[in-house]
Simulated scan of single mutants.
Amino acid sequence: MGSDKAMMIVLLYIVIVIMAFVFRITISNTIRKEAGVIGTLRASGYTKGELIRHYMTLPVIITLFGALIGNIPGYTVMKNVCASMYYGSYSLPTYVTI
């Protein structure tokens, strides 16, 4: 692996693939369970766009909220934790977060 950056990039790709797989299974099961309701709504005159907006609004809001809640401690508290780990392992000069 060579460096921390290379290891983190590989880890990031692995996590993204796992998340994509979980989302695929979840969406597939939701569509299968809701097929009757979706068919009824389509027969009632709802467009595909309206149904997609209906089923995608809550997951998008939850994802954005989770990203916001995760980034706040990540850029405040965890920054200091990660910096102290590096300072404990290596002889590094002090740094300033930009």
Rank of each mutant, 00 (worst) to 15 (best):
Thr40Met: 10
Gly36Gln: 03
Ile18Met: 03
Pro73Ser: 05
Phe21Gln: 09
Ile16Trp: 00
Ala35Gln: 06
Arg24Met: 15
Gly74Asp: 03
Ile52Tyr: 04
Gly70Ser: 11
Met8Trp: 05
Ala43Arg: 00
Ile61Asp: 00
Gly49Pro: 02
Gly39Ile: 04
Gly66Cys: 06
Ile62Glu: 09
Ile27Gly: 11
Ala35Asn: 06
Tyr13Phe: 01
Gly45Arg: 07
Ile69Arg: 10
Phe23Pro: 04
Ile62Gln: 10
Thr30Lys: 12
Arg32Leu: 10
Ile27Ser: 13
Tyr75Arg: 11
Tyr13Met: 04
Lys33Trp: 04
Ser44Gly: 12
Phe21Leu: 13
Ile38Trp: 08
Gly66Phe: 04
Leu68Phe: 07
Tyr13Cys: 05
Ile27His: 12
Arg24Ile: 14
Arg53Lys: 15
Ile72Leu: 08
Phe23Ala: 10
His54Gln: 14
Val37Arg: 06
Phe65Glu: 08
Thr63Pro: 03
Leu68Asn: 09
Met8His: 07
Asn29Ser: 13
Met56Lys: 06
Lys33Ile: 10
Val77Ala: 08
Ile62Arg: 09
Arg42Leu: 14
Tyr75Thr: 13
Leu11Ala: 15
Ala67Ser: 11
Leu58Cys: 06
Ile16Met: 01
Ala67Trp: 06
Thr47Phe: 00
Leu41Arg: 03
Ile69Tyr: 09
Ser28Val: 11
Tyr55Leu: 10
Met8Ala: 15
Leu64Glu: 08
Ser28Ala: 14
Gly66Glu: 03
Arg32Ala: 14
Lys5Ile: 14
Tyr46Cys: 09
Leu68Ile: 11
Thr57Val: 06
Leu11Gly: 11
Ile14Val: 02
Thr47Asp: 01
Tyr46Thr: 09
Arg42Gln: 13
Met19Trp: 00
Leu68Thr: 13
Arg53Phe: 15
Gly74Pro: 00
Met19Asp: 03
Lys5Met: 12
Met8Ser: 12
Lys33Gly: 09
Phe21Gly: 13
Ile25Glu: 05
Pro59Thr: 02
Lys48Thr: 12
Pro59Gly: 02
Ser44Tyr: 07
Leu11Glu: 07
Val37Ser: 08
Ala43Ile: 00
Thr40Pro: 06
Lys5Pro: 09
Ile69Phe: 14
Glu50Thr: 02
Val77Trp: 02
Ala43Cys: 00
Lys48Gly: 15
Met56Ser: 10
Leu12Asp: 09
Gly39Pro: 02
Val17Cys: 05
Ile18Glu: 03
Ile69Glu: 09
Val10His: 12
Thr26Ile: 11
Gly36Leu: 02
Leu12Trp: 09
Ala43Phe: 00
Gly36Ser: 04
Thr76Leu: 02
Gly66Asn: 05
Arg42Ala: 14
Leu64Arg: 07
Tyr13Trp: 01
Ile16Gln: 01
Val77Glu: 07
Leu12Phe: 13
Thr47Tyr: 00
Val17Glu: 03
Leu68Gly: 12
Val60Gln: 12
Gly66Thr: 04
Ile16Leu: 00
Ile62Asp: 08
Pro59Asp: 02
Ala43Trp: 00
Thr57Cys: 04
Ile9Cys: 02
Val37Ile: 06
Ile14Glu: 01
Leu12Asn: 11
